[in-house]
């Protein structure tokens, strides 16, 4: 792969996505060994710079870099100089002075990883910037879909929930569009806006309006604690109109995949029996996350050709 950074899927080509997914497939095997480690990135330094809380994304990246033998350092905004008033650029200059090879960054502002990528020589992976993109999540989602559906060309993926303010949705939208899939969006009027429609992307409203056509239903997390004011009346109404339960799921194909980026609000966007039911591939998404992140570290840092040796 030629690129220095992975900031989003907006401008990533089909060939690049296929290369990442193919490499990730090969790396999956490493995580199944008793000794889950290969020397591929020995001596390379990977920094995770997180300005927002994260559990699964952070653990997933940490494991990915450890399993490739890279040296990892984690900086979270709560413990760094940021709390003392240091700007992002100053923090980055200091990190840069210690010669990292790659920085994995999560930030509440769209464009923050782009600023680092533009100004420094180290590689940058966007682990979520504001409501803009979360490309590694979309890649692990696409790997999971591909495992079950094969080529994504012509497949229909419904994304339901706070689409407008979701970086997961945005990255999936761009990635799926590039792969030739058809995307149906649904959600409340404050969260799913007509301007997101475009070639291959249709905007609907209720969850019922997307189920019969979908090969995949991706339910987004409602972050009630982080919603700006007057976005949603109640969880009860949300669950009724936009949540997925087994009765609604019966409308869908019996092969439909139910996905969720986690953590799940059981009883809001997903009923417990659907979240843990047989159509759910949510835990496979998590497993694939490590493989996708190993693949990206490997491809961006140009590790040895024999990926899983």
């Amino acid at each position: 792969m030629k690129r220095k950074d992975l900031l989003g899927l907006r401008d990533v080509s089909r060939d690049e996505i296929l290369e990442i997914l193919e490499t990730a497939s090969r790396f999956r095997e490493v995580s199944k060994r008793r000794i889950k480690k290969v020397p591929t990135l020995r001596g390379r330094t990977v920094v995770t710079l997180f300005f927002e809380n994260s559990t699964r994304t952070k653990v997933s990246f940490d494991l990915a870099s450890k399993r490739l033998s890279a040296d990892g350092v984690h900086i979270s905004a709560g413990t760094s100089a940021v709390k003392k008033g240091e700007t992002l650029m100053d923090t980055a200059r200091n990190i840069d002075a210690m010669a990292p090879d790659l920085v994995i960054m999560r930030h509440s502002c769209a464009g923050a990883p782009h600023m680092l990528a533009r100004n420094f020589d180290f590689s940058v992976i966007n682990a979520g910037d504001g409501i803009n993109e979360h490309p590694t999540q979309a890649l692990l989602d696409m790997l999971t879909m591909q495992d079950h559906l094969g080529d994504l060309e012509g497949k229909t993926v419904a994304i339901v929930g706070d689409v407008y303010h979701s970086r997961v949705a945005r990255s999936n939208l761009y990635g799926l569009r590039t792969m030739g899939a058809r995307v149906l969006l649904a959600g409340p009027g404050t969260m799913c806006r007509p301007e997101m429609a475009g070639p291959g992307v249709e905007v609907r409203h209720k969850v019922d309006e997307v189920l019969d056509e979908a090969d995949v239903v991706m339910m987004l997390r409602i972050q009630r604690e982080r919603l700006p004011k007057a976005m949603l009346p109640t969880s009860r109404e949300y669950a009724h109109l936009y949540g997925l339960d087994s009765a609604k799921l019966a409308r869908a194909s019996d092969k439909v995949l139910v996905m969720h980026p986690g953590p799940i609000n059981r009883g809001v966007e997903l009923s417990p029996e659907v979240a843990d039911g047989e159509r759910s591939v949510i835990m496979e998404q998590v497993t694939n996350g490590v493989a996708v992140r190993m693949a990206l570290l490997f491809l961006l840092l140009g590790g040895s050709d024999d990926a899983s040796a």
Binding site: A110, D129, I131, N132, E133, M196
Partner: peptide, 17 residues
């Protein structure tokens, strides 16, 4: 109060409020 750029197709694309 929360906005940082014009709202429309471009903000939807840029992921900015």
């Amino acid at each position: 109060s929360l906005a940082v750029m014009n709202e429309g197709a471009s903000s939807a694309l840029a992921g900015l409020r």
